[in-house]
Simulated assay, not measured.
Amino acid sequence: MPSPVAPDDRVTAGLDRRAELRAFLRSRRARLRPEDVSLPSYGRRRVPGLRREELAQLAGVSYAYYARLEQGYGETMSAEVLDAVAHALRLTEEERDHLVRLAQPDRNRTPQSAPPPQALRPTVQNLLDTLGVPAYVVTRRLDILGWNRLATAAFGNWAHLQPGERNLARLIFLSPEARGRFAEPDRMAAKIAGVLRRNAGKSPEDAYFSSLIRELTQKSEEFRRSWAQHEVSCGSVGEVVRMRHPLVGEFDLVHEPMALPGGAPMRLNTYHAEPGSRSEEALRMLASWEMERQD
């Protein structure tokens, strides 16, 4: 897998929040047609989707007011206006939250001046080791901080990677070996890009986020395409992930993510197979093989 960007190559500033807001609103407006929202369509359109004035009409605000928001100036907008725009654009709950974070960032946040944590509390690692399902912990940047044996069996041996390479986005976009563990890699890549977009919106000033995005943009055409879509996702609870393994073939795991309290934002990701299923048997075989390999 290509090496991550060296510390000297890191950018010194975070994402441009206003540029992100402009691009996000335009991308959401472009996916709507007049007939989708019961508006008449007049004349040929130079670009797909609704015009600004049509969106403003749907939201019940003036054109100038909406145009200012789409130019990246949302700090003075009321919650009611943002809700009206979100409703007019037919945003999901995740997209609406993303819009609010970009339009009205928390002024009490301070830019991150140090790398994210690279180790788990021993108690969290102990928890991972006692779980009877594949599990791992990631930061908001999707850096992998800890995992258990079953995660190694299902996803690959991350212990062989350098700490800077242990990142879900780097693995799915830059490592053919890691990507090959998923039976639907394109779907997984799009999901991870959406999670990364959502998390970056929470910390647009974070230079370490922008360095990762810069690296992936430079090295992966697929990431460039996914990132340009401006999709946002928090990782679906209960989503079925189809895995592929050379020993047991394809099997399904159910993804259950949960936030870990205390300190820097971290998320515990667990995966289980449906009881009594062929996937459960496949996971049991992988667990037995991994125990024998490590003993």
Rank of each mutant, 00 (worst) to 15 (best):
P2F: 05
T270C: 10
E184H: 06
L102M: 01
V61P: 02
Y271A: 01
S233R: 10
P246C: 06
L212D: 10
N157S: 14
L268K: 06
E222G: 06
A189M: 14
A19L: 12
F209H: 11
D129G: 05
S211R: 07
A264W: 11
L268D: 11
R51M: 07
T139C: 07
G156A: 06
P40L: 07
N108M: 08
R10H: 15
D129K: 04
E80L: 09
P122Y: 05
I192R: 03
G72R: 06
E35F: 02
R17Y: 01
R225P: 05
S211K: 04
L253V: 08
G194M: 08
R46C: 08
P111N: 02
V61C: 15
P34F: 05
S62P: 12
R121I: 11
L89M: 12
L161Q: 00
D186K: 10
P122I: 08
E250I: 02
R29A: 01
M266F: 03
I172N: 05
V254N: 01
D186T: 10
E95G: 06
H272R: 13
E53L: 08
G238V: 05
V232I: 09
R22K: 06
A190V: 15
F24R: 12
P7N: 02
P117M: 15
A64C: 07
L91Y: 03
G180N: 10
E53A: 04
S226R: 15
Q112N: 07
S38Y: 13
R96L: 11
D206W: 04
G194N: 10
V232M: 01
L216G: 11
R284A: 15
S211I: 00
L91H: 01
P204W: 03
T123E: 14
K202F: 13
A169W: 06
K202P: 01
W289S: 13
V11N: 05
E290W: 11
M1P: 13
L253G: 01
V241P: 10
M188F: 04
E93I: 01
Y136K: 04
R17L: 06
R197G: 05
A273K: 02
P111T: 00
P40E: 12
E94R: 04
E274K: 13
P117S: 13
G146E: 01
F251V: 00
V124C: 01
N167V: 08
Y42R: 15
L168M: 14
P275R: 13
P115T: 10
P261L: 09
P117K: 07
R244Y: 04
S3I: 14
Y73I: 06
G164C: 10
R284H: 14
P34H: 00
D252G: 06
I213G: 00
R44S: 13
E70Q: 01
A228C: 02
S210L: 09
L128S: 03
R44V: 15
A189H: 06
A103M: 10
E94P: 11
L91V: 14
R242V: 00
S113M: 12
Q57W: 13
D295N: 13
L15F: 14
S175R: 02
A287D: 15
E95A: 07
D106F: 06
R267T: 15
A119M: 09
R46E: 07
I192N: 04
R26D: 14
N108T: 12
L260M: 09
P2C: 07
R33H: 12
S288D: 14
R44Q: 14
D83F: 00
A135G: 03
T152V: 14
R33E: 13
R45K: 12
R51K: 04
Y208C: 02
